[in-house]
Design a protein around this nucleic acid. Structure first.
Lengths: 164, 164
DNA sequence: TGAGATTCCATTGACGCCCATGAATGCCCC
DNA sequence: GGGGCATTCATGGGCGTCAATGGAATCTCA
């Protein structure tokens, strides 16, 4: 496998078995291992029917954004409820599998397949067909954006591959 | 369970039995154990029909928050009355259960189910359906807040799109 | 002695752990 | 360059452990 894996890259789709277990993609496990967080920190994606997940690095991002607020302010209440209250810490067994609780299943609309989408310091959990649709939309928007920016110079938007 | 759990995360709903006993969620007990506080420190949530709870860290946060006020000011009076006067220290039995006194039950409107909501250094105690409503509100206001803060820069709310 | 509260024990259902299978990939040796 | 072997990884199943819950037994204080 390639050099230092400190970021979640690429997309994988795995199966949920009868007991609700899913294998976390091995490359992602590798990243989590390096990250040092024992388990998987999951938090709902705000604008999509999906779930964000990661390790310490992801968790710290959330914690840090909360730390700016006074602990007894209304904003802290709201944010901590939405971010920490809705988060889950899942354990990963020795075979690299986890079980998504009902909350996450419902959140992402999971049935028997899960798509893991690498996004650098975190990754997302999607129901495959839902993600396919989302990716289509993202790609077309991206094309539009590139065209718009392309006129001003190529900087700003990286080359886009279809991604498999 | 997973790694070092030093914060209250996620949401759990447990049942109150005929004798008023409730199991504190095991992950929360774990956090309390590490925190070192023997028992459960509870005080009313200021602006909601709910109760805040935690251990030493929570208690310290309350003290610190109070220390910002002039000890003889009216604000101090009000806050200390609300935060300390109405506080309770509950004991946790060997099976990890506690019994909520009538004050807390009334305060949170509890009947036969309790929802525990992790909020980092503390957690909240809610009547489930009441919490469901509040969560809805928290989520929508969270979105609004994010848009507002998102415009000024990434601070405030966790990164949501692809990130490096 | 009786009512409420606390401790101890039993049940059950979920979850973690171990092993087995099988497929795909990479490696080595001929 | 090709065939065969070893490894890795996803998946399935059986089993032990733990947590949540319910009930019985014990304690306490009036």
């Amino acid at each position: 496998m390639a050099g230092r894996m400190d970021e979640f890259v690429s997309t994988f789709t795995n199966r949920i078995d009868g007991k609700g277990r899913v294998s976390i993609p091995a490359p992602f496990r590798e990243v989590l291992m390096r990250d040092g967080f024992q388990g998987l920190y999951c938090c709902p994606t705000l604008d999509q029917k999906a779930v964000d997940a990661g390790g310490n690095r992801f968790r710290d991002a959330i914690r840090q954004s909360l730390s700016q607020f006074d602990p007894f302010s209304e904003d802290y209440e709201l944010l901590s409820t939405a971010l920490m209250g809705e988060s889950e810490i899942l354990s990963i067994d020795k075979d690299g599998r986890t079980v998504f609780p009902d909350t996450i299943r419902a959140r992402a609309g999971l049935t028997d397949l899960v798509t893991f989408v690498g996004q650098g310091f975190k990754f997302q959990i999607w129901e495959p067909s839902r993600f396919a649709a989302y990716r289509e939309e993202a790609n077309s928007r991206m094309r539009a954006l590139r065209q718009r920016l392309g006129a001003k110079g190529s900087a700003g938007v990286p080359p886009q591959g279809g991604g498999t």
